[in-house]
């Protein structure tokens, strides 16, 4: 790919991405009343999307591999437990991430 082709490709990708970001706002402009169905979706989509994003992050976990997905499962339990116990955002996230980083290093040694 030449440098010009490279820039065209980047520009086209920017265009596609920007389009998906702006489309809802271009269709439902501020002057217009938002239809009831769209308002309803605006209320119910986000909780479902957070579920989708969690699964998206976990999409490559291999439950049949060497570690049976244990680092992910255990760290997720740690995140949830810390959240339910202490609430807040940073503690559960830091705890879960540190736990995960330790587990992916230690588990292979322990399981041999």
């Amino acid at each position: 790919m030449s440098i010009i082709q490279m820039f065209i490709t980047i520009a086209v990708v920017v265009l596609g991405t920007v389009l998906t970001r702006f489309l809802p706002y271009m269709v439902f402009t501020e002057g217009r009343e938002i239809p009831m169905t769209v308002k309803y979706l605006g209320r119910v989509l986000a909780p479902a999307v957070f579920g989708l994003l969690v699964i998206y992050c976990l999409r490559n976990v291999n439950f049949t591999g060497d570690m049976f997905g244990l680092p992910d499962i255990i760290s997720l339990i740690v995140v949830a437990a810390l959240y339910i116990w202490k609430r807040g955002m940073l503690l559960p996230m830091a705890g879960g991430t540190v736990c995960y980083m330790i587990l992916i290093r230690m588990l292979p040694l322990v399981m041999q």
Partner: peptide, 29 residues
């Protein structure tokens, strides 16, 4: 960028990968 030049397919990929932004937009309207 490492494969051959194909802007149409790049655009389609961008729209598909970005499709979830539609949900974000509707939620943030």
């Amino acid at each position: 960028l490492l494969s051959s030049f194909n802007p149409l397919s790049a655009f389609a990929t961008a729209v598909m990968v970005g499709a979830r932004h539609l949900f974000y937009g509707i939620s943030m309207l």
